[in-house]
Design a protein around this nucleic acid. Sequence first.
DNA 1: CAGCGAATCTAGACACTGACAAGATTGCTG
DNA 2: CAGCAATCTTGTCAGTGTCTAGATTCGCTG
Lengths: 184, 184
Amino acid sequence: MPSRPYHHGDLRRAVLDAAVAAITEHGAAGISLRDLARRAGVSHAAPVHHFGDKAGLLTALAAEGYEMLAAALTETRERTGDFVEAGVTYVRFALGHRAHFAVMFSPDLFHADDPAVSSARERTYDLLVSGARAVRGEPGIAEIAAWSLVHGFATLWLTGALPPGAADDPERSARAIARILTGS
Amino acid sequence: MPSRPYHHGDLRRAVLDAAVAAITEHGAAGISLRDLARRAGVSHAAPVHHFGDKAGLLTALAAEGYEMLAAALTETRERTGDFVEAGVTYVRFALGHRAHFAVMFSPDLFHADDPAVSSARERTYDLLVSGARAVRGEPGIAEIAAWSLVHGFATLWLTGALPPGAADDPERSARAIARILTGS
DNA sequence: CAGCGAATCTAGACACTGACAAGATTGCTG
DNA sequence: CAGCAATCTTGTCAGTGTCTAGATTCGCTG
């Protein structure tokens, strides 16, 4: 049993996990394929076989992120049926999986026309706004407003742009903000 | 009169302009200092003297972006005094100066602790939310909600995440969305 | 169970990048 | 007009993404 077998076993998963760690540390633009290969204990060109190129790796991460977000929104919907709580789940996902979230909304970094990403993104959107009838405003606009509100809050929080006090308890702030839309 | 004098004249401005063009094309993470130097017609190391390093160049762009946004918000405020129109101005700036906007909210790419950027950002925030008393909801939350809403809409529009119909007339959509907050 | 094609990984190479050092040129100030 | 500081050039180095050729191993077919 050699200490490092020729075949890794699950290099694809290992590289994806290493990418999440590296992105959380240095940002989505600050990672290098060669560093990920080193973290996974393989040669510098090994990841290419699984993802094609660097953008391919980030495409896989984006698709995985949309799948995870869709699953979280589905769970929230079945458990509470509450539109406001769906927004809170969106924010919780963004803050808890910031590497995935950062890649998902950086279309310059991955193959944005990838069908797996597109379909997963559309499904996520439908889940998020399916309860938007509770939102005031003309139809078609209320859904966009709901998504914009939670997405903007999460983005501003992640970039550190919010004033000090507002960033302390993000879930509480997110819930309070989402309630404004429903008028409750 | 040599065709290319030893001193450029205003290399700093030329590099910043080249950066805006390059970022608009390839995204904030896809630019290279050497390419900007080529576009400006100078040697590959010339920009370093003006900005220190790549992050320094993007820091200058971020600061310039916050100054431009603050100026636009001030103009809107003095002309209309309307809170909703301030939000529309925010969206119009993001869509019309997407290179600046992208850098402003990518703190991983520039020196986020730069004092020039920090002060310009705080001033912009004050301008944007100064009319937020018109927004429903508890104080402190309404301001965050207002900023989150317009910022989220602009970000989603720029990343191409919005469904086809919603992205057609962004200013109209932005105005309709901002009106939801004021309850009008 | 043997063998063989396909999948996986390694090793080497190339052009490109950001950063640094040393020197050339020029504007500016006393 | 002398000299100093700012500006720019040239050369260099390690690191990166991607491509090619070849080595190793898996898994299926007979």
